[in-house]
Simulated assay, not measured.
Amino acid sequence: MSNKVIIPLLLSLAFVGCASVPKADQQAVQLQKSIQAPQAGNAGIFVYRSNNVIGSALKKDIWVNGQCLGETARGVYFYKEVEGGKPHTVSTQSEFSPNHLSVSAESGKNYYIQQYIKPGVFIGGANVKLVDEAEGKQAIEKYSLAVAGTCYKPSIELPKS
């Protein structure tokens, strides 16, 4: 390869980094991971961002029912208890507008939602998908609990039903 290709490639790699968000202290992480089921009448929602290299320099907001849960980065998750027996909307920031996922939360159950980065026109967008319990638990075991409450927009408007 010529130097005209190698040098710009090396320079661009030097400017690529990983986004980071504040993480909960180790005691809070252990307490949260030891909880097997949500409180009576509630459901648990875990939202995690996979540890993929794609989009690792991006932070993306997550909202539950239009309220800020926090900013995600690679290898982190959030946990939120919600009222059971009703639908809840998990939303993520994307390139042009938020993407939404409706989850009919049954009391006593945990739900695992993966946020993933997808290619965009100008910058990577994000989307969310519901994953099965085995896959979600495996991811949560490896990832760090993020501190909730910091979003670019503190709340968003939900889609009309």
Rank of each mutant, 00 (worst) to 15 (best):
K4S: 14
V5N: 10
V5R: 07
I6V: 15
I6T: 10
P8H: 08
L9R: 08
L13M: 13
L13W: 05
F15H: 06
F15Y: 13
F15Q: 03
G17L: 06
C18P: 00
C18K: 06
S20F: 05
P22T: 08
P22F: 13
K23V: 15
K23L: 14
Q26K: 13
Q27A: 14
A28P: 01
A28Y: 04
V29M: 13
Q30I: 14
L31A: 15
L31F: 12
L31M: 09
K33G: 07
I35K: 09
I35C: 08
Q36L: 14
A37V: 13
P38D: 02
P38T: 02
A40I: 13
A43P: 00
I45R: 00
V47A: 12
Y48G: 03
N51R: 11
N52I: 13
I54H: 06
A57D: 08
A57Q: 12
K59S: 11
C68W: 04
C68V: 03
L69Y: 05
G70L: 12
G70D: 01
E71P: 01
T72R: 02
R74C: 03
Y77G: 04
Y77T: 01
F78I: 02
V82I: 07
G84T: 00
K86I: 07
T89D: 04
V90L: 10
N99Q: 14
N99D: 10
N99I: 15
L101F: 12
S102W: 07
V103R: 05
S104P: 01
S107A: 15
N110S: 14
N110W: 03
I113P: 00
Q114W: 02
Q114I: 05
G120P: 03
G120N: 09
V121I: 15
F122R: 12
I123Y: 12
G124A: 14
G125S: 12
G125H: 03
N127S: 13
V128N: 02
V128W: 02
E133P: 02
K137H: 08
Q138P: 03
A139C: 05
K142E: 12
Y143F: 07
Y143H: 01
A146G: 05
V147M: 04
A148D: 11
G149Q: 04
T150F: 10
C151A: 08
